[in-house]
């Protein structure tokens, strides 16, 4: 997995609540589609007009935000389906970090499997960062430092964020969770041996 250390990039505000995973990537792009072509279909119903042309009103189509790598989002971002391609689609669009008041739980977990950093900040703080960005989008740079757990807003304001220690370490080191669990095979085998006596009906 790709490491996440620090990131200094344009941030794009998309503050509407409840942006769901179906909006991030439609299921028909996952069925029979190519996993490396998800980026161009990310947010497709918002990003493109029915005739296939770009929607000039959609914020991620606006010039400075086309190079954004940080997404400032509304509450319950990426609620809905468990589809991990929602993370891949955002990554292929260039995003490496999403900052929101809350996330869909499954998307939140999927981010950490892919080197994407989801940060939870309260709504007024997310809105304040967005306001700073919107004041001068060409210079709307936000810096995220995972090691120090800080965000620096465009005006230079420093904001601390919380992240679970194990997930922080895994992102910093780019650790592979499956490999780590495989090293615990003896514990898994011992659990199953005990459990087979206690709950034999589970093992069919």
């Amino acid at each position: 997995m790709e490491k996440f250390l620090t990131l200094s990039a344009i941030a794009a505000p998309l503050l509407r609540d409840n942006i769901d995973t179906d909006v991030i990537i439609r299921i028909d792009r996952l069925v029979g589609g190519r996993p490396d072509e998800l980026g161009k279909y990310a947010f497709e119903l918002l990003r493109y007009l029915p005739d296939g042309g770009e929607n000039p009103d959609f914020i991620l189509n606006l010039k400075p935000y086309r190079r954004a790598q940080i997404l400032l989002a509304g509450a319950n971002f990426a609620c809905g389906s468990s589809r991990e391609p929602a993370v891949w689609a955002l990554q292929q669009m260039g995003f490496r970090c999403v900052i929101a008041p809350s996330f869909g739980d499954i998307f939140f977990a999927n981010c950490f499997q892919n080197g994407m950093l989801p940060i939870v900040l309260d709504r007024p703080t997310v809105e304040a960062i967005a306001a700073e960005v919107e004041a001068d989008p060409e210079h709307g740079f936000v810096t995220v430092d995972l090691e120090k757990q800080t965000i620096v807003s465009p005006s230079g304001r420093k904001i601390r964020f919380e992240i679970e220690p194990a997930r922080r370490e895994a992102l910093l080191a780019g650790l592979d969770e499956i490999g780590m669990t495989m090293s615990r095979e003896a514990e898994i085998a011992a659990f199953q041996a005990r459990d087979r006596n206690r709950r034999p009906w589970v093992y069919r």
């Binding site: 389906s81 468990s82 589809r83 991990e84 391609p85 993370v87 739980d105 499954i106 977990a109 999927n110 499997q113 892919n114 679970e164 969770e177 499956i178 669990t181 495989m182 615990r184 095979e185 898994i188 199953q192």
Partner: peptide, 23 residues
């Protein structure tokens, strides 16, 4: 019972376990 993403799915296939945070 809960839903998982595709990386967690492979984790379950390989180890019959998952790393989970207690909600």
């Amino acid at each position: 019972a809960f839903g998982i993403g595709s990386t967690e799915l492979v984790h379950v296939l390989a180890t019959q376990t998952l790393v989970q945070r207690k909600p």
